[in-house]
Design a protein around this nucleic acid. Structure first.
Lengths: 155, 155
DNA sequence: TTCCTTGCAAACGATTTGCATTGGA
DNA sequence: TCCAATGCAAATCGTTTGCAAGGAA
């Protein structure tokens, strides 16, 4: 359930500023607990579960509080929530913070790796996605390819 | 949580035969209950939850039995399990039975619609996916685009 | 003071499992 | 006959919520 990759990472301070602004606009505080959650997620690649997050946060945060932070952050659009193969919720920075990317999902160990496409591929994909959306009278908000298979560790 | 679309549907009998063979090879029986599940899923577009399935199966099947059927069928590779926005499991025929397709996910009502790509787009997408997989030493088993947005009913 | 946030414990809901019964090859 | 499949009820487990205490504006 670990992950690795490379991605353009903005300075930590700038990240905090952007999140703080967003939360303020939503009328909620950017408290220490929420800040720790955001920083933890910014430090890893791939979405994390609440359980994994508590391990990373040395100071033991009660799960209920953690879930509340995650819920608030997701509601404010700071985090994206998805679900792994076993249905457990996983969180990652939203695209406007963490960048647009896709997922490699290992069917063996469940690890999720982030990948960026080169510009040409990304554009080709976006074109396909928006064409489909239009043909179905669907208002596209985003798209993502999930590539399923077996990661190098498991094969 | 409903859905609509078009897709090549094989004759019901042939579907049963293919599933029966697969299950026999896996050493499990193709019982009446399992047959009803498979037929229900073949009759709709988009993945269904266990709860939705019980409604469709007039004869009231206990949830526990239904879940056992779904687990067996997914384990045998007859069904694919995914999860909706709230983490509830949804099942659909595996691609070798139901055909390769992609999903339009409505962020408002949660409906999932199936979409087929034209040959050219599908090939372009496959090429991108396999190129990514290779570059990450990942053994690709499959891929799918999820297009998120607002469906025509909700907008 | 006034709300928002946090802890703790209890409540929830989807899914799973133990066990006894039923049913098909 | 014999083992897989099924029902029912109880158990799990991730996640949510009620309520009282703590904190920031």
């Amino acid at each position: 359930m670990t992950t690795s990759s490379q991605r353009q990472t903005a300075p930590a301070g700038e990240l905090d500023d952007r999140v703080a602004l967003r939360l303020r606009q939503g009328g909620v505080r950017y408290t220490g607990g929420r800040r720790r959650v955001v920083r933890s997620l910014a430090a890893v690649e791939g979405p994390m579960s609440a359980a994994e997050l508590t391990e990373r946060l040395d100071e033991s945060v009660p799960l209920s509080s953690l879930y509340r932070s995650l819920t608030v952050l997701a509601g404010a659009g700071v985090l994206d929530r998805s679900h792994d193969a076993s249905g457990v919720a996983r969180f990652e920075l939203s695209e406007w913070l963490g960048g647009h990317h896709h997922h490699l999902v290992c069917l063996e160990c469940g690890a999720v790796d982030d990948v960026d496409l080169n510009e040409a591929d990304e554009e080709a994909l976006s074109t396909i996605a928006s064409r489909v959306a239009v043909s179905k009278s669907f208002t596209e908000v985003g798209h993502r390819i999930d590539i399923e298979g077996i990661c190098s560790k498991c094969s």
